[in-house]
Design a protein around this nucleic acid. Structure first.
Length: 334
DNA sequence: CTTATTACCTGGCAGC
DNA sequence: TGCTGCCAGGTAATAA
């Protein structure tokens, strides 16, 4: 469900409701959705903690809490050999990462809110806030996860934090391999296709060095963070590039068009509060309106808005892929 | 290291 | 009604 524009919309809509609030209670109905902590450990870590920030990186939501989650505990500032007087550690924070994968939702609502039988059946974690309302994690497909991260985690994603290339060095804490994997993934997220993120010269050079087909590459979160199946198709359509083209085969002009298309599509989708095709809703349970602006995604057999040719569907990288065979000429035809 | 394929889980829908 | 098969917004594991 959620790609960058949807996760960003959730972040924006949730922020006024949760930032500054204290979590009074957390109810874990399905423990498998929480990585890095048992239900009891999660309770210990978050109950009584205040949400001091809600950020997003790629498709991850990052809840910053004003208490260390400690895990087996500690080591706060004690690990550092020198630095006898840590200049006021910015107050220890723990972090709750959330990845919604295909069908996850985070909704702020009143305790009695009912979103229909299917969703009611799949409420997996409930946070009760000190304003009496709830933050619910709902996931009908069971792919998403909440990750309790022991302590500081590079906020803007820099290598200072966990996960150097040095895999096993110090920190032999009782490492949960799943948590470690996610932290590595998080740390290796690429730049986002927005101002201040991916820049044109870097993009051009990265494309030139890759042999992969362009669509799977756009879906690779370590290459560019935030695109998913819908927006990858929409960006390629807007740029007039067939999804099976090899990255290194794109002309400078094509690469430039793709670069611009990514920024435009992502920006416009955010302005429309995301794309709701079936499940997606924002932090207040509302749907986004970008679905009506889609040009090719989900429009197999309909007329291409540019040339009228019928939109085709193929499987690329195991994903349904939508394109106009005329506006996006296939690789062999060039 | 890069690229490609499959598994994960449930629900909605078209077709019979 | 109910069954079958296909489809679904994302990744991690595995294979080559």
């Amino acid at each position: 469900m959620p790609e960058l524009p949807e996760v960003e919309t959730i972040r924006k809509t949730l922020t006024p409701h949760v930032v500054g609030k204290t979590i009074e209670k957390v109810e874990v109905r399905s423990p498998e959705f929480v990585v890095g902590a048992s239900p009891a450990e999660l309770r210990r870590a978050v109950e009584g903690a205040r949400v001091v920030g809600l950020d997003r990186k790629g498709k991850f939501l990052v809840f910053r809490l004003d208490r260390p989650s400690g895990g087996p505990d500690v080591s706060g500032a004690a690990g550092r050999p020198d630095r006898a007087t840590p200049p006021d550690p910015p107050e220890p924070q723990s972090v709750l990462l959330v990845h919604l994968k295909m069908a996850g939702a985070l909704v702020y609502c009143e305790p009695g809110a009912d979103f229909g039988p299917t969703r009611q059946k799949h409420i997996h974690v409930v946070f009760r806030l000190d304003d009496g309302n709830e933050l619910r994690y709902i996931d009908t497909r069971h792919f998403g996860r909440l990750y309790l991260v022991p302590d500081r985690l590079a906020g803007a994603g820099d290598p200072a934090g966990p996960a150097g290339p040095d895999g096993r060095t110090s920190r032999a804490r009782e490492a949960d391999p799943v948590l470690e994997g996610v932290l590595r993934t998080f740390a290796s997220l690429g730049p986002e296709p927005r101002e201040g993120g991916l820049e044109w010269p870097a993009f051009r050079d990265k494309l030139a060095r890759r042999d992969a087909r362009i669509k799977p590459l756009l879906l690779d979160q370590s290459f560019v963070a935030g695109l998913g199946n819908i927006y990858a198709d929409e960006c390629l359509f807007r740029a007039g590039i067939h999804p099976l083209r090899r990255a290194s085969s794109l002309s400078e002009e094509e690469a430039r068009a793709l670069f611009g298309a990514m920024r435009e599509v992502i920006g416009e989708a955010i302005d429309s509060q995301g794309t709701s095709i079936r499940d997606y809703v924002d932090g207040e349970g509302r749907r986004g309106s970008f679905a009506e602006k889609l040009n090719v995604y989900g429009r197999t057999g309909e007329a291409c808005p540019k040339c009228g040719t019928k939109v085709e569907r193929a499987i690329v990288a195991g994903r349904g892929t939508h394109f106009c065979p005329r506006c996006q000429p296939p690789p062999e035809a060039r």
